[in-house]
């Protein structure tokens, strides 16, 4: 094959790879971004909520497969809502048990951030302590089919992941910008003291935000478990940190920013590994991100908050 054709195929293939990988970052970054937008809280436990989502999906799917003898796609269709609801419950529990009391007491926001970090560690190691050390294999719910377009390989899962990520972004964007509760969320982030005066209960809005963020983390966890079917308690930590980085580079608090940031990070990581020595992947990827933040100190889509003197 001529060199040009191979290069083109490689670029196309890696674009697809990057789209898939970026989808996960985007989905998780959206959760960070929602909570941050409303509360100015970096919910570091979010990566681990996503891990919990993957585990819940695992247990629900294995249970359904073992009990019913249902076909894979039915199991998947049932697993998605159950996982989302259960994981949302976990996210809301965290908010109620750990963050809200601190907020009520008027703690500095960084103390809440560190509490979130601790909650993440509790989730990770609690999982390890209760469920044991063995990694789990996620059952294959839908048979993976490989399509070949010349030298470019595509799987149905890959396409599904990308579609779901874009769909979730559109849904969230609509909720935040078109609905009443979305307006309440924006209002809360704009002025949290004026909100109760307008007759909107802030706690309801906050709980709704956590429900939204956690259920999309669950969706990401489920898709991740299907694409990379080895689950371990620490799977959320690294992805969580990187998704947070993606959310910030996009401009934290902006849904579009988180979405774009996730794909940007995915692209940078994959392309660097693909076309430069993969040994230097982290080095080059983070240098690029550093450079972006240097050029645009409030991220890609972020708007500087003006300060009154």
């Amino acid at each position: 094959m001529p060199w040009g054709g191979a290069l083109l195929a490689s670029i196309l293939q890696n674009t697809l790879n990057a789209l898939q990988w970026g989808s996960f970052y985007s989905l998780i970054a959206l959760g960070y971004c929602l909570v941050y937008g409303v509360l100015l809280l970096i919910n570091f436990a979010h990566g681990d909520v996503y891990m919990v989502g993957a585990y819940i999906a695992f247990f629900v799917a294995t249970f359904l497969l073992a009990s019913g003898g249902l076909p894979g796609w039915v199991v998947l269709a049932v697993t998605v809502p159950i996982t989302m609801v259960l994981t949302a419950a976990v996210g809301v529990t965290l908010e109620r048990v750990a963050y809200r009391p601190l907020r009520r007491k008027g703690a500095h926001r960084l103390y809440v951030v560190v509490t979130a970090l601790m909650c993440g560690i509790i989730l990770e190691n609690g999982n390890l302590a209760l469920l044991g050390a063995a990694s789990r294999a996620f059952p294959e719910l839908v048979t993976t089919t490989v399509f070949s377009l010349g030298d470019v390989k595509l799987t149905n899962l890959k396409v599904a992941v990308i579609v779901v990520a874009i769909g979730s972004f559109l849904i969230l964007e609509t909720i935040v910008s078109r609905t009443k509760i979305g307006m309440a969320m924006r209002a809360l982030s704009y002025d949290r003291f004026a909100l109760p005066l307008m007759g909107i209960p802030p706690d309801t809005v906050i709980v709704f935000t956590f429900v939204l963020g956690s259920s999309f983390a669950a969706l990401a966890g489920l898709l991740f478990a299907m694409s990379y079917p080895v689950l371990d308690p620490y799977m959320g930590a690294m992805v969580g940190w990187k998704a947070f980085i993606a959310a910030v580079v996009g401009g934290i608090g902006e849904i579009r920013g988180a979405f774009a940031g996730g794909f940007l990070l995915g692209f940078v990581e994959i392309m660097v590994a693909a076309f430069l020595p993969s040994t230097f992947r982290d080095l080059i990827a983070f240098t690029i991100l550093l450079f972006i933040l240097w050029m645009k100190p409030t991220g890609l889509f972020g708007v500087a908050r003006f300060q009154k003197i």
Binding site: S10, N14, A18, W21, F224, M235, M238, A273, A274, S278
Partner: peptide, 20 residues
């Protein structure tokens, strides 16, 4: 001679290179 970093889950870029 491709590498990744501990806790990585996606190896598609490296594997694309290897396949090619």
């Amino acid at each position: 001679f491709e590498t990744f970093t501990t806790k990585d889950k996606d190896f598609s870029a490296q594997l694309t290179k290897i396949v090619a």
